[in-house]
Design a protein around this nucleic acid. Sequence first.
RNA 1: UGGGGUGUAGGUCAACUGGCAGACCGCCCGGCUGUUAACCGGGAAGUUGGUGGUUCGAAUCCACCCGCCCCAGCCA
Length: 437
Amino acid sequence: MPDSHRPRRIEDLPRLAGATVAVRAWVTTTRFSGKIAFVMLRDGTGYVQVVVSKKDVPDAAWQACGTLTQETSVEVVGAVRADPRAPGGGGVELQASELRILGPSHDFPITPKEHGTAFLFEHRHLWLRSRRQVAIARVRHEVIQAIRDFFYERNFVLVDTPILTGSIGEHAGTLFSTEYFDLGKAYLAQTGQLYVEAAAAALGKVYCFGPTFRAEKSKTRRHLTEFWMVEPEVAWNDSDANMTLQEEFVASIVARCLERRKAELAELERDTAPLERVTPPFPRVSYTEAVERLEGLGAEMAWGRDLGGDEETLLAKQFDRPVMVYNYPRGVKAFYMKENQADPRTVLNNDMLAPEGYGEIIGGSQREDDYDRLLARIREEGLPEEAYAWYLDLRKYGTFVHAGFGLGVERTVAWICGIPHIREAIAFPRTLYKLWP
RNA sequence: UGGGGUGUAGGUCAACUGGCAGACCGCCCGGCUGUUAACCGGGAAGUUGGUGGUUCGAAUCCACCCGCCCCAGCCA
C-alpha cells in the first residue's frame, strides 16, 4: 500500500486537504440521489462525509455503496477536499475513488430518531457510539486527566487503596460483601479515606482515585452503586485549608474542560456561561447560617437535621458558583470527623454543592486526631473496635492535624456536561436494576 | 425501604363509554448527480409484558405476577 493510502484518522483530514488518503470507519447515515451517494462516516476521532459518484468508482464499489447501512464498517480511499457544503466539523469531505465493506451491519437498533432511556441502556454497548455519548466520554476523560494533572503539579503522591477490605468505612449496611478464602467476609471499598490517612503520614500529600461501591438501594438521578471517587488527604491541613484546596481543585477541572472540550460541550448544547463563573473564592456558609437562610426562604428547618436534596438545591440557587456548607451537627456526620472546639455540637467538615441543582459533589472534613476522642466516637457508634485498631494507631504514633475530601467523578461530569442523569456520565453504569451490559 | 407512574410493530406513541390493531420514524424494494432530520412511489412488520377471571365480545374492567421509569431517604 502506498504511503498516501496509509489509513488516516478523521481528525487528521482537515490538514490533509488535497491528498488522497484511506480511512477506516463506521457508517452513520447514507443519502442517495441517483448516481451520487453521500455517506457519513465516524471513527471516534470525528465525522466526515464521503461523496461517491458512480462514474468515479469501480462497479463493485458502487454496488457495495448501495448496500451500506448504519454502523457498517468500511474502508474508503479518496481525495480530501475542502468544500463549504461539507456537513459537520472540519470543512472537508472525501471524494471516493474506492470503497470496500469490512463488516456489514443489519438492523442496528439505535436509529437516528427518538428512543426511551430504558431501551438505550439495554443497548448501552451500542449507544456509546452516538455523538452525544462520545462527547460525554471525552469530557469525562478530560475531567480525569485534569484531576491527575492538578495533583501531579502540586506534588501529591497517588496511593492506590484496596478495593477488597476487611475493615469498614462508615455504615456496615451499605457494603457489598463476598467470601474471602478462610478469612470470612471481605467488603468492596466504599471509600479509600482511612487508608489514605495512613499514607498521608508517610507521604504528606496524597490522593487515591478508584472505583467505589455502595450497596445503598438508591434510585435517584444522583446515585450509582459503583462510581469513581478521587480522595485527597493532606497532613497539616485544617478544615479551612481543606476548603481552599477544594475550590482551587474544582475551578481547575472546570477551566480545563472549558479550554479543551469546547467542541464536546457545544455538541451537548451546554450553556457554558455558568461554568465560566466557577472561579475561586467560592461562597462558604456554615450549617447554622444555612439553616437560617433556608428558614428565611420559607423552608421548614430544624437545627440538627441534615440538609435534604430540595434544601441543597434551594441553597445552591442563592449563589452563582459552587457553595461550601461547613460545620454540620455532629449527629448527622461520620465518626472520624473532628469535633469543633468552638462549638462541640458541630464537626469540622464541609460539603460542596454544585450549582444548577446538581447537588453534592464533594464531602470532606478535618479528621479527628485525638486518640481518646476518636475511640469514644467509635464506641458511641457501636463500631467494632478491633477493626479500627490500625486506624487508631495513626493517632497513637505522632498524631497530626489532617484533612481531606472525596469528589464524585460522575456527578462532576454530569454537572459540567449539563446532563440530567448521572448514569450517562459513565460508560457502563451500575444501578439497583442494571448489572448488564 | 416508602410514594407515584408505565408496559400496544424494531423505536416513539395513538386507539371515545368494552365493539374491525393505527400513525410517524426506522427497515426492505424502486426512482432521482449536492444530500444536511433529504425527497417521491411501493412493501413487510403485532401472542397489545405474563397468567387467570368478568363478558356475546377485553389493548381497554378485576386479581396476581414480571419488567421498567420518576420522586423521597442514604450519600459522592
